[in-house]
Amino acid sequence: MSLPEASIHPTAIVDEGARIGAGSRVWHWVHVCGGAVIGENCSLGQNVFIGNRVILGNKVKIQNNVSVYDDITLEDGVFCGPSCVFTNVVNPRAEIERKSEYQPTVVERGATIGANATIVCGHRLGAYCFIAAGAVVTRDVPAFALMAGVPARRIGWMSKAGGRLGDDLVCPLDDSRYRLTGPETLEEIGEGIGR
């Protein structure tokens, strides 16, 4: 398969029909199935698997040893840490075919999923949320939420820049400002100035 706009390592397998955007890098031993749609400037680390019914936005970064199964959408700027796990069936059994029961998972723009975290299918992870390493997500996640534990619980808030917000809801990295709009909802109210 010729995809001149993308950089594909010789050990990678890209099935016929897969769409990979310009500037994307597909590293060692990656397998991209034929129905996958991958945006521009993405990076797929070693030993990544991308299923047929997967959509990746632009600038998605997936670290080593991650499988992104059918019916998963990762919007622009999503980061997946090494060996994080996505599921597509809630109650799998080896002896029972459940492909008709796949549940869609959507990870919204700018979200971060830490190393070895597990995302149980059928949930939406809000924009710029931050899932701590090893956390197990079993429900929807609000935008900007910092989630940790098993099962994952919100332990704080994170800014777009990836800074943990204190009580003043001002980002320590770029001075952007946020406000609570409900007990589990946060919104940005002022862009940061950078440091």
Rank of each mutant, 00 (worst) to 15 (best):
S2R: 15
A6Q: 05
I13M: 13
V14E: 00
V14T: 06
E16M: 08
E16W: 12
E16Q: 15
A18S: 06
R19P: 00
I20H: 02
A22L: 08
A22F: 10
R25V: 15
V26W: 03
H28F: 13
H28P: 00
W29Q: 11
W29D: 15
H31G: 07
C33T: 07
G35L: 10
V37N: 14
V37E: 13
I38A: 08
N41H: 14
L44E: 09
G45C: 07
Q46M: 11
F49T: 14
I50H: 02
G51C: 08
N52T: 14
R53A: 11
V54Y: 04
V54C: 03
K61T: 00
V66L: 10
V66D: 05
D70Y: 03
D70K: 09
D76M: 13
D76F: 07
G77D: 04
F79L: 09
C80T: 02
P82M: 13
S83D: 04
N88T: 07
V90Y: 05
P92G: 12
A94F: 14
I96T: 09
E101M: 12
Y102H: 08
Y102N: 12
Q103F: 02
P104D: 07
V106F: 11
V106R: 15
V107I: 15
E108G: 00
R109A: 06
T112Y: 01
T112S: 05
G114Q: 01
G114P: 01
A115P: 01
A115H: 00
N116A: 12
G122S: 11
R124E: 08
L125N: 02
L125H: 09
G126I: 11
A127H: 10
C129M: 07
F130H: 11
I131G: 01
A133M: 09
G134P: 04
V136N: 05
V136Q: 03
T138M: 02
T138S: 10
R139Q: 12
V141A: 10
A143I: 02
A143D: 09
A145N: 06
L146S: 05
L146F: 12
A148Y: 08
A152C: 02
R154H: 07
I155S: 12
G156E: 09
S159E: 00
K160P: 00
A161R: 10
A161T: 04
G162P: 00
G162S: 09
G162A: 13
R164Q: 05
D167V: 05
D168F: 01
V170E: 10
V170H: 05
V170S: 07
C171W: 10
D175H: 14
S176N: 03
R177P: 01
Y178Q: 04
T181Q: 00
T185P: 00
L186C: 06
E187T: 15
E188G: 12
G190Q: 14
I193Y: 03
G194T: 11
